[in-house]
Amino acid sequence: MSDNKKSLTVFKTDRHEDFAAIIGSALIVVVVLTYMAFVVPSVSIKPQQDGKLMEIFVKEGAEIKAGDKIFSLEVVKKKWVKNVMEEKVAIQEFTSKAGGKVLKVAGKPGDKVKKDKGAIIVLEHIKGTLP
């Protein structure tokens, strides 16, 4: 029976495959967290939604803390309300997820921005924190 198991899958049994998947995903998490916290020297903070850049609250060289406002976007907010999709234009403020030093302010108020495209702010975050 054990010979069959060896020949049937990459792993001896599904149980091994399950554990390998748990270990694999844990490894990915550890690598990503370590990379972001300690290895990457700075992070580019990109827009999380399509919209228009309205205001940037920080200047180059400024020291900021986690939770500080960094920029605001004019976005179209879509929300289901009573089974109808409601769309309204709103100004949304975004905060920094980690403290650090603003290395560069790449965006300008009035810029049209696309989700996950182009940095607005480049931040040198405090080592050991997750930006």
């Binding site: 069959n4 198991k5 049994t13």
Partner: peptide, 11 residues
């Protein structure tokens, strides 16, 4: 399929 379901089936 997890645990030993698949290997049990193949056997």
């Amino acid at each position: 399929s997890g645990c030993n379901a698949r290997i049990g089936f193949l056997e």
